[in-house]
Amino acid sequence: MSDTLPNFQLLRPDTIQAAVAILHDTENAKLCAGGTDLIVNMRRGLATPKALVDLTAIKEMQQITNDTEGLHIGAGVTLSELAQNTPHSAIAQAALAIAGPGHRFAATVGGNLCLDTRCQYYNQSHWWRKSNDFCLKYRGETCHVAPSGNRCRAAFTGDLAPAFLVLGAEVDIASPQGIRRIPLAELYSGDGTDYLTLADNEIVTKIHLPPGSAKSVYGKIRIRGALDFPLAGVAIAAKKSARETRFRIALTGTNSRPVLLDDPAPFTTNDSAETYFSALNKAVQKAASPQRSTITAPLYRKQSIGALAARLAQGLTND
């Protein structure tokens, strides 16, 4: 017996079908791949599954393939493998900005896309949360971030999602009925508690990226430079022609879901860079909705993500 973690049964299916069947038939089961976030949360008493379904034996989820329809990345690919095997700068930069090198050997693409939302009132020990009457996200009745509201304001802080969003990713979702494919943005609900649109018996199995030659970049703001979740993160893809540059921009860490902005007007040869990127900074700030979910002030996160986005976008036009 070991009492560091609550008791659970560990199940290790080796096919997607078997994993879906276990999920469907087992009450209170949770998916686990690298476990680099889930195990920490379980130690804090934030999850007490009866069974953990370990996905790391499913070989078909660990492949990256490339064909005329684009790049197909298994959800079980580790972050260190992803960083070495993607042609997209934003994806490699986002993967390498997640946690530390040791975590990236275990943590997976699917795990980061489905990363639990975070909040200063949630990612705490049991006694800390208990002394605060818990919170709306787990076991409590009040969101301490926005007590007058009825919605959990925990922030989505996955680094990969914005990079995949600006490159037009779709995801495969396996269920007992088979596999369905949806745009990545539809994976997220926008609610801090039920932050994914997945049913209890569904698994994200693969990410598809269309072929394309857009240049891309990812940047994040964090407290501990070597290893931390984003206070705010931004991915930008740019398509350049002789007369204009078109941007796609997505954010993480600022809202309860990753946010894909409406495409801004292109930057043309007639535009003043100062005016254009100042407007882009403002548009990003408008889309970001940071709350008191971190100890860092929301206004700081809002202003800095706008400035970072403008700087990164301008950098792409100069390349």
Binding site: G35, D54, F105, A106
Partner: peptide
Amino acid sequence: CDGGECGACTVIIDGQARPSCITLAST
């Protein structure tokens, strides 16, 4: 740290340095 943040528990698993405090023994 007990939470995968400090690296004091790092061991080499199949050639890769990984935190042992967030790794299940049975895996």
